[in-house]
Design a protein around this nucleic acid. Structure first.
Lengths: 77, 77
DNA sequence: ACTCGATGTACAAAATCTTTGACATAGCCA
DNA sequence: TGGCTATGTCAAAGATTTTGTACATCGAGT
């Protein structure tokens, strides 16, 4: 990955909030591989919009509850 | 494209609602090329989550106001 | 008639995302 | 100890998105 993603997410929290769902379970229900889910959950890259929608749907929440995009103005380390 | 996207969007409507913004203008403000914007607006493929976020941000609306993902249950032609 | 701006198309190349398969670690429990 | 589950990592191949370049059409002006 040349350019790390700026998108963060609440997947881990949602997973635990949804009754101890494992990464493998979630990956299965979303329709992606476990590796893909891990990479997304860790923010190593941002998923496609379609994958993002499917993740949100599994949790039954809107997209903005799962993924956050920081204000470009304030990403100074 | 092997698999056409199921994601639809309201970009054209939002563009006109935002004072006659042209595709070139929007592409510029989003930070993608005109071709990319046209392809997305026409639903030829779904953008990356990051691109989607930037589009929504230009219009000042949440992601779900720009993109819609149909219920997988009912996409029978 | 001519030009200009806005939209659309086509194609290949580059960049990014996803899969596949294999292996590693840590915790738990019989 | 040995086996099992959950999590994480790596590398290479495959699929999808994005770019770059070029060209076409349409409608509004002048």
């Amino acid at each position: 990955m040349v350019k790390p993603t700026r998108v963060t997410n609440s997947i881990r929290a949602l997973r635990f909030a949804s009754g101890e769902m494992t990464q493998a379970d979630l990956a299965d229900r979303v329709g992606v591989t476990r590796q893909t889910l891990i990479a997304i959950e860790q923010g190593r890259y941002s998923p496609s919009l379609e994958t993002a929608f499917r993740i949100a749907r599994v949790f039954g929440v809107p997209l903005d509850d799962v993924f956050q995009y920081p204000d470009p103005a304030e990403e100074k380390p």
